[in-house]
Design a protein around this nucleic acid. Structure first.
Length: 275
DNA sequence: AAAACCGCCTGTCGGC
DNA sequence: TGCCGACAGGCGGTTT
C-alpha cells in the first residue's frame, strides 16, 4: 500500500518522464474515482493542459498544471500510476488514462486501482482540498521536531501508533512504516502517547525520517499491489524488521515477534526490544 | 473537540 | 475440490 516512500518514488519516476508534456486527451474508464467534478468537465478541463511539475505532500501526488490548476491523486490501498508507451497493452482495473505528447513523442499515464479506494480531484488555481490542508508536517521538514511532537502527543489520549498514523499529526506514515519506526525507536505501539518520555519522543523524531529515507532508497515496499511509476516492484520488503513477521524471531534479540490489533490495525512488535 | 466506528472495494488465503 | 468468511488498510463521513 503506497505510503510516503512509495508515493515519493512514483513522483520522482514520473517527474523525470512527463514534466513538460501536454495532455491531449483524458480517457475516464471508471468515473467513480473522479471526486469533485463532473466527468465531462474533468475531461475538457484537462485537455490541452501542460504538466509543469509533480510534487508530493504526505501520500498525495500533485500534478501542477501550467494554468495553475492542480490534479490531485491519492492512491489509497491499491492505486497505481504508471507511465506507459502507447503501444503497451492496458492492464485490468484501468480507471483513467491520460494521453500525453511533447514534440513527436507520445506516451500515456495510466491510473489503475483494483479496489477503487483511491481518488482524483482537479482543483482550480485557488481551490483547496480539506484533506490536503489539514496535513501535519512532512517527516523530513524542520517543523517535524521533538518540540512539535511533544506538544502534539501530550494532549492526546490515544496509543502512539494511532498518532503516527494520524495524517494531521505527521504526514505520510501508514501501517507498514508505523510498525518499522516504532521498532527502531524501541517503543511499543500500544503505549499511550502521553506516557512517552522526552527521550522516547526524540527517538521517534530521529528514526522516522531515517526509516522513510531508507525505504525511498530501496524504491518502496511491495507486499502485493504497489508498483512504481514505471510499473516495477519496490525492494524495501526485503529489509522490513517487523512488519508482516509475527511469529518469526526479532532480528535483534531473537524473541518471537508478537501480533496485536492496535488502533484497528494489525501491528507487529518485539516484546523485548520495545518498551 | 476528540475519539470511535463504518463504508468503500477486490483479491487472497485458511478452514471445513 | 469448492465454498465462505476473514482480512488487507486509508480516508471521509457519521456518531458518540
Amino acid at each position: 500500500m503506497p505510503e510516503l516512500p512509495e508515493v515519493e518514488t512514483i513522483v520522482r519516476d514520473l517527474r523525470e518522464k512527463i514534466v513538460g508534456y501536454k495532455i491531449d486527451k483524458a480517457e475516464v474508464v471508471e468515473g467513480s474515482v473522479i471526486k469533485n467534478s463532473d466527468e465531462e468537465w474533468f475531461k475538457s478541463a484537462l485537455t490541452g493542459e501542460k504538466i509543469a511539475d509533480i510534487k508530493r505532500r504526505g501520500k498525495y501526488l500533485l500534478f501542477l498544471l501550467h494554468s495553475g490548476k492542480i490534479l490531485v491523486v491519492h492512491l489509497r490501498m491499491t492505486g497505481q500510476l504508471v507511465y506507459s508507451e502507447p503501444s503497451s497493452p492496458v492492464q485490468k482495473h484501468l480507471c483513467l488514462n491520460l494521453l500525453l505528447s511533447a514534440a513527436e513523442k507520445r506516451l500515456e499515464l495510466r491510473y489503475y486501482d483494483i479496489r477503487k479506494f483511491g481518488f482524483i480531484y482537479l482543483l482550480l488555481p485557488e481551490e483547496r482540498l480539506p484533506g490536503l490542508e489539514k496535513l501535519g508536517p512532512e517527516p523530513f521538514a524542520a517543523d517535524f521536531s521533538s518540540a512539535y511532537l511533544t506538544q502534539k502527543l501530550a494532549k492526546r489520549k490515544q496509543k502512539i501508533k494511532a498518532l503516527l498514523l494520524d495524517q494531521t499529526v505527521i504526514a505520510g506514515i501508514g501501517n507498514i512504516y508505523a510498525d518499522e519506526i516504532l521498532f527502531r525507536a524501541g517503543v511499543r505501539p500500544d503505549r499511550l502517547s502521553s506516557s512517552l518520555s522526552s527521550e522516547e519522543i526524540e527517538r521517534l523524531v530521529y528514526w522516522t525520517p531515517l526509516v522513510l529515507g531508507e525505504a525511498i532508497k530501496h524504491r518502496g515496499t511491495t507486499i502485493s499491489d504497489y508498483r512504481d511509476g514505471l510499473g516495477k516492484k519496490g525492494e524495501f520488503q526485503n529489509f522490513l524488521r517487523v512488519y508482516g513477521r509475527a511469529g518469526e524471531e526479532c532480528p535483534v534479540c531473537r524473541t518471537i515477534l508478537l501480533k496485536d490489533k492496535i488502533a484497528g490495525r494489525t501491528s507487529t512488535f518485539c516484546p523485548q526490544c520495545q518498551k
